[in-house]
Structures are given as structure tokens and as C-alpha cells.
Amino acid sequence: MSATASTLVHVAAPHRRRTLADPPWLKRILLTIALGFVGLFLVIPLAAVFVEALRGGLRLYGAALTEPDALSAVWLTLLAAGIAVPCNVIFGLAAAWTIAKFDFRGKSVLTTLIDLPFAVSPVIAGLVYVLMFGAQGWMGEWLADRDLRIIFATPGIVLATIFVTFPLVARELIPLMQAQGRDEELAALTLGAGGWKTFWRVTLPNAKWGLFYGVVLCNARAMGEFGAVSVVSGHIRGETNTIPLHVEILYNEYQTQAAFAVASLLTLLALLTMLLKSIIEWRHRRALLAAAHAETRTFAS
């Protein structure tokens, strides 16, 4: 508990400590660089998306979002992300625990293999599932005989989504858990807590922001993935199109405005997640204010 409190106090107030204040000129330079970069690379493209999306007015914007094909794309995207994210959270926690808390032979190889899906071009990511489950693939005959469909149907889309988002949660957690070391867990164990209890009470609270960022990234990427899903989807309208595929189709039909309208939905989703994060942060801070008064020191050395 106290570990949680101290973590949040750090998050809440580091910049208020006088000794930690950067000189104003440095602050100004860094802010200018950061905001300039964000402006050029993020704000302007975002503005372009919304300008295009609203070019035909709000009514067309609404129409593009409520059209049956768009709704079915939204549903499929939510479903794929809804399965992929929990899978990757389980995997990410397991992988981070193994890699951050233990030393063993082949650790570097394992870490690299976890990163590998990122280095694999999305095109290849889709292709490998086709090579496995496609009609010409390893399991093609077997699946066809049983009338089971994996690619060009929902399971293939879910698999491809898990593949491309595979390293995200693990990659967020590993550096964080490595930086935190093992001392707190060892202390908890020495004090008689069991393995699971230590995990729930010490490791998870300590890693929660890393986990949260991991989930946010994983979710965003799961919903936005285009290349890999495009290969395994089959592009059947109203059935196997996700939001990004629907956007591409609209764009290819000269419905630029509708395309950007649907794309803006994904952008809004990202902004919404961040709002959610702020709310959680704020509520936690309030709830822990009393605790923070009583106890500000960490027990870790």
C-alpha cells in the first residue's frame, strides 16, 4: 500500500520541488522544441483529418458513421481489440515477470523474439497466417474438410491483431520492472506474503502505469492495424472489414469525406482513452491524499 502511495506522490508533485526546477531558459527551449515537433508531426496531420472529415458538414459526418457497413466495421474492430488486448496483457505480465525478475540463459534471445513481431512487416504478418491456414497452407485441407474458417473470417483478423500488438504490453513493462528491481518483492516474501499476493499487492501496483500505457498502446494499435488485417480479411463488406479497411475502401471510392470521418473515430477513441487516464489519475490522487499525509516515505531502500 505504501509503495502505491509514494509512487503517486512522485507522479503528482515532482515539479514542485525547488531543487528539481529547470532554469527558465532551458524550460523554454525544451518546450519550444517539444511543442514544435508535436505541432509539425501530430497536430497538423490531426487537423487535416478533421478538416477533411467535416468538409461536407456535420450531417454527412454523422451519416458516414451510422451507415450499416461502418457500424459493422466498428463492431468487428471492437471485437478484435477486445480479444487481442486481454491476451496480450496476460502474456505481457508473464513475460515481464520472467525477464525482469529472473536471470537465465537465453534471456536476450527471448527478449528479442518478443520484439520480433514489430520488425516483421505487417504484410508478412498477414502472409504467414495465410501460409498456415489458407486453402494452400499447412492446415488448409484439414480446416476445409471440417468447414472451419480462420482466415477471411473473424478468427484470422483476431490472430493477425494479436500478432502485430504482441510485444506492446511486455515492452512497456520490462524496462519499468527492471528499473524497479526485485527488492520490494523480496521484502514482501520475507515478510511472509505468498507469490500471488506479492504479485497483486506489490508488483502490479508498482507497474500499473507501465501496464496502463501498454494497454493504451496495444488497444490503439489493435484498432488501427491495417496491413496485416488487410491480408487476412477478404474485404467482404459488412462482414470482414475493420475500421481501417473500411476507411481505405471509402477513400478508394472517392468518398474522401466519409473516409476521414470514419478515421476520425479512431482518433477520438485515442483522445478518449487519455481522458480516462486523467480521470483515474485524479481520483486516485484524491483517495490517497490522506494516506500520503500519514506516510510519505518508501520502505524500499
Binding site: 511543442l35 501530430l42 490503439a220 481501417p244 476507411v247 481505405e248 478515421a263 485515442a270 482513452t273
Partner: peptide, 27 residues
């Protein structure tokens, strides 16, 4: 800048950082 400085619009910039992820690559 996001973690250490307090400036107007910090939350928005924080949210924007994920944009390249959420935006389908084709878009």
C-alpha cells in the same frame, strides 16, 4: 516536457502522442 513541466494543453499533447498508433497507417 510532458512529465516534468506544467503548461496549458499538456493533457492534450499527452493524448496526441498516441495518434500515430490509432490512425490507420493508410490514413
Amino acid at each position: 516536457v510532458l512529465v516534468r513541466y506544467e503548461f496549458p494543453g499538456r493533457k492534450i499533447v499527452d493524448a496526441l502522442v498516441d495518434l500515430p498508433f490509432a490512425l490507420p497507417t493508410a490514413v
